[in-house]
Design a binder for these strands. Structure first.
Length: 219
DNA sequence: GACCAGGCACATC
DNA sequence: GATGTGCATGGT
């Protein structure tokens, strides 16, 4: 793939997705903290299961940093059970809560005041927060200009011949960042649209026949 | 019953 | 550095 073509191709893909699906309204979540919690809970899990857990936490007024800090890890695990890997995710949430308390006084607003360049490595240092979770928190909870790459992004772009099979996360992330205008709403919408396309048309078992971006890129 | 879902850390080679 | 494995529920 010639480097000069990538920008226009990514723009065209976005255009076609937007025309096919329109705005996706991402991320589902009422507060930055809720978005961050959801980002951890949705790891390798259907969003419907995450929504149940979020509702369970809300119903008991537990969806605040302070309330979750005070909640025993075993009790937290019980409440997020529908998301799968619940023991693992309870620990990961606790790790994030410790980070938020220690560095930003339990305040997502304070966290938001920090630079992307320092925040991203800081988030990645939390055990249980990998690149996709970190970028989801940065882009959707804190409105920082980073791009979220997920399994659908890899699958869609490799299946349409834009990237090699073994393309690394950072490589793909930089591809989007380097070729798109620096606009947070664009990054948010683009990732959401890729997930929408992936869910409907780009499953592990291919059935891309007449999907909305069939024939892209034109050769 | 198999497959899949908006990953990540860790062990092993 | 690449590859394999454990973590686990709920929908299709």
């Amino acid at each position: 793939m010639a480097a000069g073509r990538v920008g226009p191709l990514l723009q065209e893909l976005y255009q076609r997705l937007w025309e096919a699906y329109g705005p996706q309204g991402w991320w589902p979540g009422e507060t930055p903290f809720e978005v961050a919690v959801g980002a951890i809970l949705t790891q390798n899990t259907n969003w419907g299961n995450v929504a149940r857990a979020i509702t369970a936490l809300k119903d008991q007024d537990l969806l605040t940093p302070q309330a979750l800090q005070a909640l025993p890890e075993t009790e937290l695990a019980r409440l997020i059970r529908p998301t799968g890997y619940y023991n693992l995710k309870a620990r990961r949430l606790k790790n994030f809560l410790d980070f938020l308390a220690n560095h930003f006084e339990n305040s997502m607003a304070r966290m938001s005041a920090a630079d992307l360049a320092s925040l991203r490595p800081a988030l990645l240092s939390i055990k249980g927060v990998g690149p996709e979770t970190a970028d989801s928190i940065l882009l959707y909870a804190l409105a920082k200009p980073t791009f979220v790459v997920d399994a659908y992004t890899f699958r869609i772009l490799s299946r349409h011949g834009l990237i090699a099979e073994g393309c690394a996360y950072e490589e793909l992330r930089h591809m989007f960042l380097a070729h798109l205008p620096v606009q947070v709403p664009l990054y948010q919408e683009y990732h959401a649209l890729l997930v929408r396309l992936g869910k409907e048309w780009c499953r592990p078992q291919p059935r891309c026949a007449t999907c909305p971006v069939d024939g892209w890129p034109a050769e």
